[in-house]
C-alpha cells in the first residue's frame, strides 16, 4: 500500500475515525460497481459494499500494510458476497433491469444504462465462480495471482475458470452482439 494510505490507516487506528473516509473514497465506486456486477441487484449491491466498508473499518487493525489495500477491500467484498450465499443471484436480470429506472431516483448518478444491460446479459451466462474470476481479472485488471489471493484460491483454479469464462464470453458476444464482432474485425 502507498504511504498516504498507510498514514490514513495509522490515523484511524489511532482513533481519528474521520480519516477512514479519505482512505476508502477512492474505492467507493469500484466496490459498489463490482458488487452490482456480482449480484446484479442494486439494493443488494449497496448492502454488500456497505458491509464491506463496515468490516474494513472494524478489522483495519488486522490489515497487513505490506499488502495492497485495494486487494484487501476486494477480498472482504468477495467474502461478503459469498456469505450472502448468492441468494438472489439467479432470480433473473430482466426483472431487476425493469425495476431499475434511473428517472425514479435522480440522486443516483448512473451512467450508460445501455452498456450496463449489455454487460449484464453476458455476465448472466457465467457461473458464479466464472463471474468472480472474470470480473476481477478481465474487468478490474487484477493479475491472475492477485485474483487468486482475493478469492483465496489457487492460480490454477483461477486459470481454469478464466478460460471457461472467456470461451463463454466469446460465444455470448458473438451470438447476442454480432455487430460488435464485425465492427472490430
Amino acid at each position: 500500500m502507498d504511504e498516504k494510505e498507510s498514514r490514513l490507516v495509522e490515523l484511524v487506528l489511532g482513533g481519528q475515525t474521520e480519516a477512514f473516509e479519505p482512505l476508502v473514497t477512492p474505492y467507493r465506486k469500484l466496490l459498489l460497481t463490482l458488487a452490482y456486477r456480482l449480484s446484479r441487484n442494486i439494493e443488494e449491491a449497496k448492502e454488500i459494499s456497505q458491509e464491506t466498508l463496515l468490516r474494513a473499518f472494524r478489522y483495519l487493525g488486522s490489515f497487513d500494510r505490506r499488502r495492497s489495500f485495494k486487494n484487501w477491500l476486494l477480498q472482504i467484498e468477495m467474502n461478503v458476497w459469498r456469505s450472502l450465499g448468492e441468494r438472489a443471484a439467479d432470480e433473473g436480470t430482466l426483472r431487476e433491469l425493469a425495476a431499475w429506472n434511473t428517472h425514479e431516483d435522480p440522486e443516483e448518478r448512473l451512467a450508460g444504462k445501455e452498456a450496463r444491460e449489455k454487460l449484464l446479459t453476458c455476465l448472466d451466462g457465467l457461473s458464479p465462480r466464472e463471474r468472480e474470476v472474470f470480473l476481477l481479472r478481465d474487468i478490474e485488471g487484477r493479475s491472475v495471482k492477485e485474483t487468486a489471493e482475493v478469492l483465496r484460491t489457487s492460480p490454477i483454479s483461477v486459470r481454469v475458470h478464466l478460460s471457461r469464462a472467456r470461451v463463454k464470453i466469446r460465444r455470448l458476444v458473438k451470438d447476442r452482439f454480432p455487430g460488435l464482432m464485425e465492427a472490430q474485425r
Binding site: 465506486k29 472467456r166 464470453i169 464482432m181
Partner: peptide, 23 residues
C-alpha cells in the same frame, strides 16, 4: 481474434457502466 474482440467489447461496456453512491 474473436476472444480478444469479445473481451475488448466487454471492457468497453464496463467502462461505460460505473455506479456511484448517491451522496
Amino acid at each position: 481474434e474473436e476472444i480478444k474482440t469479445a473481451l475488448d467489447g466487454i471492457r468497453a461496456f464496463a467502462n461505460g457502466e460505473v455506479i456511484d453512491w448517491p451522496v
